[in-house]
Simulated assay, not measured.
Amino acid sequence: MSERTRTGRPNRLAFAAAVVLALITAGPMLLMLSGALKPPDDVFDGKVLPTAPTLENFQEVLTGAPFGLYLWNSFLLAAGVTVAAVLFHSMAAFALARLRFRGRDGIFFTLFATILVSMPMIIVPLFIVVRELGLLDTYAGVALPMVFQAFALFLLRQFYLTMPAELEEAAKIDGCGPLGIYWRVALPLSRPILAALSIFIFLGAWNSFLWPLTTTSDSSRWVVQIGIASLQGEFAGEWNTILAASTLASLPTIALFLVFQRQIIESIKTSGLK
């Protein structure tokens, strides 16, 4: 068997597997878009006649409900949570990785152990705390409990542990303290992983449903996921309208991935090399 044959067959198998995985991933999205573009009476009614695509369902979503406001609320929530989480977690991870103080490892393992605690387990006491602080029906009340991410702290700490000590020593010679080392050395080095982490945090906040539903009763504070749930009651049985709303809600996340896919790949490569 020639060298070309031996190397070509695994490549073809890998390509075929990639195509199958891509179809499995894109299939639900294509079905959602297809349903959103169908006329109101041609979804899930057994008809097989072809129909021309229409934007009527999107117009119904945007005019029949304040869906633009829901999208804006989700953007504010996701952007605020992402900025705060990246800033505080990078600072905390740097301190837990590069600074030496008593109880450092105990603090880290205590914080990391919270990854085993899911939101439904703490939603009642968390709601009581937010209520006592007077933060119900506010952006702060929804966003603040979502800022802490145990996985983000773990990931950044592991990255900072691999930072060469020579860079830190050189920064100290130049007169930098811990804050200067963090800002001028650690933060620039961690840009790829911070970019990927920002995307994951943004997507998690964008798709949040349970906690915003618990803390907001004012419809002007609803996020897009609650808005889609409310449409299921307002447009009961009109699944094409629900699919149109879901398509609109997914567009920002798809655009975010397309814009920052290079940073995601770079972070994976960097983590692998470490």
Rank of each mutant, 00 (worst) to 15 (best):
M1D: 03
T5K: 08
G8N: 14
A14F: 15
V19K: 02
L21Q: 02
L21R: 01
G27S: 09
L31M: 12
M32D: 04
D41M: 15
V43C: 05
D45K: 12
P50V: 14
P53L: 15
T54D: 09
E60L: 09
V61C: 01
T63Q: 05
P66C: 04
P66K: 02
Y70M: 01
L71F: 01
W72G: 01
N73D: 00
A84I: 10
S90Y: 15
M91D: 09
L99P: 07
D105E: 13
F108A: 02
T110M: 06
M121C: 03
L126M: 01
F127D: 00
I128C: 01
V129F: 07
V130I: 09
L135Y: 04
A140V: 11
A140L: 11
L144C: 03
P145K: 06
F148P: 00
F148S: 00
R157G: 06
M163Y: 10
E166K: 06
L167A: 05
E169V: 08
A170W: 15
A171K: 06
G175Q: 10
I181N: 02
R184N: 09
R184K: 04
R184G: 05
S190R: 06
P192Y: 15
P192G: 03
A195Y: 13
F202M: 04
G204P: 15
A205G: 05
A205M: 07
A205Y: 03
L210H: 00
W211Y: 03
T214R: 02
T214F: 07
S219M: 13
S220N: 08
R221Y: 04
I228D: 02
S230C: 08
G237V: 15
W239S: 05
A244F: 11
A245K: 05
S246T: 07
L258M: 12
V259Y: 14
Q263A: 12
I268S: 02
I268D: 00
